[in-house]
Every structure is written in structure tokens, then in C-alpha cells.
Design a protein around this nucleic acid. Structure first.
Length: 570
RNA sequence: GGGCCUGUAGCUCAACUGGUUAGAGCAGAGCGCUCAUAACGCUUUGGUUGGGGGUUCGAGUCCCUCCGGGCCUACCA
């Protein structure tokens, strides 16, 4: 048994996440964490909200609330939705926590000591009307290249030309529309990532088994143009972590905060400290996950994220860790995901396009979403959600293959033998063959889970479900019963034990249905050492109840209604 | 513009470092079963692997080129 630290990319605070966000990090990390726990590993599964930055301030302003209050409310909403989806992390933290304040300031101090922080005076656009500096993206105007009026300060969406805000003709604030702008000088801290480029490249090169999506993005940033660029790690904002050197003030940086991408990944560590605090534990209890001098050397650390997050996790955060000169844990494996598209376009938070977590739970229970999203996870390519494919997949896999298997065997048993595992008869060749087949499939399933091949694991799990229907069909206890009730009893007993096995094996993907099934059968959750031993896990005479149908089918009427309902914007 | 990924049956995807007649699931067709959520099982029809060229004894896999889709490009996060 080993110790596995698992983090999911932390969702931004400014709204409810859509299914694309969910399948890109939180859902696969949950499957992996549940699997690792089931196998008996000691697991720390961490997530949090990412709360700082301009969009959070704007969203709070739009909601008419102080930003701290807004974030607290949104954190609670996201926590509840995560619970609704069965996302079982050990702690769901907040990047605005005191723990993260202290750690972020600590890292900045260490980086400064190591000579990796540079102070740079630069010019930035300030909006008098908005009372704030504007990020390049929040400045709009006419593109000097193509004349498009909606060009942003970083790039023109129309002609794709890279721009500088001062290039724009008639620049205005994208927030208020105000043209009362001025260019001001402001001082910021830069992390000298360029000085660490060699270390980072060697480290990336040593990761032979990482997804190509992960390493190719990292290499692109390392090699492109002049190589890895230094990165500004401070901003002129109110909401954020005040810039300090450890616990000391930082002269000249008063009133500034750290950039959200500097403090967000540090929250993985801070959230683990928050976990210790919340559970009345000591610093040593979280440090054994994160400090290689305090036990974390033996920890396997796995991160889950969408591809847009990869540069920060392969380069910026490791630069912070390595640059600190302290023995912090570096990630061992980064699992990255492509995007899930919605009905031929993109999911979009800003445009309200697609299905959002709260809406998804309103219309169906979490397992439908978990199963379909995970068995179609965008691992090697962007994937596509359409209502028709979703309906087909969920109905076939969950209702017909798994749900109906449980239904047919429990109801058959009830009608012929009553609601207890029947006694009599013995297992023979047919059962041995199923055991042998499932033993191989189990090994394949475990191998896919361990290499975090989510789609393949799901396909193998489905094949394990199918084996139950195949067995029943060929063993035909309903026919055998007429001639040889003892033999029919053995067949039924074997099939009931398969159902119990399925409850255990399916738990990482569909925890709610798995729990329902375990409760109905009165079965345990212990991961099987061998299939043979599970064939009698439910002993003769063991009472059970027939569960409600685990999954009802999505009807054509429902599908059409939802297709209509979610066609526009929320 | 640059970089990366990608194009395989009607649909969604497989195919370890190039190696025998390119495989699954869904959808379609036929048969069977009647325990079950009109569910299940068996059989079966679908592919010049986007086009063209090249390397090789051998190419879905490597190279060139053309066509299509997607992402990233560092101050949204």
C-alpha cells in the first residue's frame, strides 16, 4: 500500500461550472481517488476554489456584493454541487484562506532570498471611471490592423493579430466603456523563470510516461521564441494576497497583491494544511504529504487538469517549488484533458452555453453524468456531448446492461427462492469459466485505472457487467429450475454474487448506484483479491432486498425537452 | 504568422517501439430466450484507415505534400 496525493485543478470562483469543466479535472480525479482508496492506499484528495483576480472582483460587483462575501457564497455553492456529484475530496479549500496567504508570502520570500525575484517598473492602463488598472483583455478598441471595433488589448479576435493596448485606436474600458484612461507607471515583481529553465527542462525530460498533451505544451513554452519568459507575479488589485516577503512588508509593493496564478497552485498545499486545521491535526500531519524531508518522499503525487492549465502546472508552479530551495513535493504525474464540446460548439461559461452543474443535477442523478462523461472523457482529443449520444449511452450501459442485470437476478430469486441467497447446488464448469474470464478482465480494469486511462477502464467495467448477462443467458436458471431446482439455486447464488461484485467494482464511476446496490444486497465494499473468493461473498441464506431499478431510462420526450431547454443561454 | 494535437465502419472510439485476413460499443439486419427496465444472448451487414506521393520485405503507424477539424501563443483564469 502506498500514499497517493491527488489534486484536481481548482475551479474559478466566478460562477457555476459546466460539464466540460467537470470532466476535465474534478471528475477523473475523483474516480482515481475512489479507486486508490478502494485498493487500500492512503489517499489525500484535494480541491479548492480559486478566488482571486479581476473576474472575481467584477462578478462580485455585478452581484452587488463585497468580493469576500461573494466568494464565500460561491464557495458554498460549489461545495454543495460537488457533493451532489459525489466528488469525495478530503478537503475543499479556498485560495483566500489564511493558510494560503501565509504560504504564498512564504514562497515569495524564499524566491526573493534565492535571487529569483526581480522588480520591474512598467506602464499599465488605468481607468479613472473604474478606479482600477485594466488587464490588457479588459481594454477594447479599434484594431489598427484590420479596423475591427471589438479588438481587445492583447489580441484582435477578428484578424488574430497580437496587440499591445496602446496600439488600439479609441481605447475604452471593457468594464464600463469609459474612455477616461491613462497610462501609468507601476512596479511589479517578476519570477525569474528563465533562470530555472534548465532545471525545468531536465525535469520535464525525465517524465517519459506523461501524456503527450502535457509534455508538448510544456516544451512549447520552454523552447518557443527566446525560451521560458519571466512572469509577473503581482497585480494592482484589492482582492488577493498582499505582497509580502514571508511575514515582512515589501517596500514599494504596498497595496499590491500576488497574481492569482502565483497563489492558486500553492493552495494545493495550503488546502492540505486547511484539512489538518479542520480536523484538529498538527502541521506534521499535512507536511508528511508535501515535505520530502517529512515523509513525502514516498508519496505519489498526481494532478488532474484541463489542457489550459498545463503551463502553470508544468512550469510556473514547479518553478516556485524548485526556486524556493526547500524540500517541497513536486508532481509525479500530470493527467491533462482536452475539451468537451456541446452540440457542435464549445461549452461557454461567459456565454452560458451548455449544461451547468446545477442544471445537470436538477434533471438527472449524478451517476448518469459521471458515467457518460467519464466513459467519454476527452483524453486524446476534444470530445463531443450531444443529447442523443448521451441518451443512448446512458440508457444502454446503465439501464440495460447493469441495471437490468441486477433487476432480473434479484427479481428472479425473489419469485423462486425468496429474498435470501438460495442454498444448495454447486458451482461447475460454467461458473469456473466466468470466474476465469472475469479474473482477466479485473486485471485489465485495474491496469487501466492505475495508468489513469479513464475511457478504457470504463469500457472494461462495462464488459464486466455484460459478462453477467451472458452468464445468465447461457445458464438459464429459469429453465433449469423446472428440472433441477438445486442447480438453479447455485446459478442464482452465483449471479447474485456477481451483482455484489459489480457494486464494488463500479463504485469509482457510479458511487451512488453502487451504494444503493450494496445496501440492497447487504454486501461489503472490500476490493476483491480474486474473483473466485467473491463467488461466495454472499453466503447461502444471506438476506437481501430487491432494489428499485438502479437506473430508469431517459425517454425521447425528456431528451427533446432538454435539448430545447438547453439550446440557448442560461 | 508560429507551435502542438487530430482525421480509422452511419456514430463514438481501439490497434505496445511499423509486423499475420484493421478491432470494440452504439445504430442497422436476422435468429433465439422469456428471469428482467419491450430488457438480455447469439449471429451478421458496414472500412482503398481524409487525398496524393515516398521510404520499407512489410505502413493506420515513419517522411513529404495537399485538404479538413481543434487547441495554445504567456495580463481572463
Amino acid at each position: 500500500m502506498s500514499r497517493i496525493l491527488i489534486t484536481s485543478a481548482i475551479p474559478y470562483i466566478n460562477g457555476i461550472k459546466h460539464l466540460g469543466n467537470l470532466v476535465g479535472s474534478q471528475l477523473p480525479s475523483d474516480v482515481y481517488a475512489r479507486y486508490a482508496r478502494a485498493r487500500g492506499h492512503e489517499v489525500m484528495h484535494i480541491c479548492a476554489t480559486d478566488e482571486h483576480g479581476t473576474p472575481a472582483e467584477l462578478a462580485a460587483a455585478k452581484a452587488g456584493k463585497p468580493v469576500a462575501e461573494y466568494c464565500a457564497e460561491m464557495w458554498a455553492i460549489q461545495r454543495d454541487l460537488a457533493e451532489g456529484f459525489g466528488l469525495a475530496w478530503d478537503h475543499f479549500g479556498r485560495s483566500s484562506s489564511q493558510r494560503n496567504h501565509a504560504l504564498t508570502q512564504h514562497f515569495a520570500g524564499k524566491l526573493a532570498e534565492a535571487g529569483l525575484i526581480e522588480e520591474v517598473t512598467e506602464k499599465q492602463v488605468y481607468s479613472h471611471t473604474d478606479g482600477r488598472f485594466l488587464p490588457d483583455r479588459y481594454i477594447e478598441g479599434t484594431c489598427p490592423n484590420c479596423g475591427y471595433d471589438g479588438a481587445r488589448g492583447d489580441q484582435c479576435e477578428n484578424c488574430t493579430k497580437q496587440l499591445d493596448p496602446t496600439d488600439l485606436i479609441n481605447p475604452r474600458s471593457a468594464i464600463s466603456g469609459s474612455t477616461d484612461l491613462e497610462v501609468r507607471e507601476t512596479k511589479h515583481l517578476y519570477l525569474r523563470q528563465s533562470a530555472l529553465a534548465g532545471d525545468l527542462e531536465a525535469w520535464i525530460d525525465s517524465k517519459k510516461d506523461w501524456p503527450i498533451l502535457t509534455t508538448s505544451i510544456a516544451r512549447k513554452w520552454l523552447k518557443d521564441g527566446d525560451g521560458l519568459q519571466d512572469r509577473g507575479i503581482t497585480r494592482d488589485l484589492d482582492w488577493g494576497i498582499p505582497v509580502k516577503r514571508g511575514s515582512e512588508d515589501w517596500p514599494g509593493m504596498e497595496g499590491k497583491v500576488f497574481y492569482v496564478w502565483f497563489d492558486a497552485p500553492i493552495e494545493y498545499i495550503a488546502a492540505t494544511a486547511e484539512w489538518a486545521d479542520a480536523n484538529g491535526l498538527q502541521d506534521a500531519d499535512w507536511q508528511r504529504w508535501w515535505r520530502t524531508d517529512k515523509g513525502a518522499e514516498e508519496v505519489k503525487y498526481v494532478q488532474f487538469m484541463g489542457k489550459d492549465n498545463v503551463p502553470f502546472h508544468t512550469l510556473s508552479f514547479p518553478a516556485t517549488i524548485i526556486g524556493s530551495g526547500e524540500p517541497w513535493k513536486l508532481v509525479d504525474y500530470i493527467k491533462s484533458f482536452n475539451y468537451l464540446n456541446y452540440q457542435g460548439g464549445q461549452f461557454s461559461t461567459s456565454k452560458g452555453r451548455g449544461v451547468f452543474m446545477d442544471q445537470a443535477l436538477e434533471i438527472l442523478s449524478a451517476d448518469y453524468w459521471r458515467w457518460w462523461l467519464l466513459s467519454n472523457a476527452p483524453e486524446n482529443n476534444d470530445a463531443e456531448f450531444t443529447w442523443e449520444v448521451f441518451q443512448q449511452g446512458a440508457n444502454k450501459d446503465l439501464a440495460d446492461v447493469l441495471g437490468n442485470f441486477v433487476s432480473r437476478i434479484t427479481k428472479f430469486c425473489r419469485s423462486k427462492f425468496g429474498e435470501a441467497v438460495p442454498t444448495g447446488g454447486t458451482y461447475g464448469e460454467a461458473e469456473e469459466a466466468v470466474i476465469a474470464d472475469l479474473q482477466i478482465r479485473l486485471a485489465t480494469y485495474e491496469a487501466h485505472m492505475e495508468s489513469i486511462e479513464i475511457r478504457k477502464a470504463a469500457a472494461e467495467l462495462r464488459a464486466i457487467w455484460v459478462a453477467g448477462n451472458e452468464y445468465l443467458q447461457s445458464a438459464a436458471p429459469w429453465a433449469v429450475f423446472k428440472e433441477n431446482p438445486e442447480q438453479a439455486a447455485a446459478i442464482t447464488r452465483f449471479a447474485l454474487n456477481l451483482a455484489a461484485l459489480y457494486a464494488t467494482l463500479s463504485e469509482p464511476f457510479i458511487p451512488f448506484a453502487s451504494a444503493t446496490l450494496r445496501e440492497a444486497l447487504g454486501s461489503g465494499a472490500k476490493w476483491p483479491e480474486s474473483i473466485a473468493e467473491t463467488a461466495n461473498a454472499l453466503p447461502e441464506g444471506h438476506p437481501f432486498t430487491v432494489p428499485e431499478n438502479l437506473f430508469t431510462k431517459i425517454t425521447d420526450e425528456q431528451r427533446e425537452e432538454w435539448e430545447e431547454r438547453f439550446a440557448g443561454t442560461r
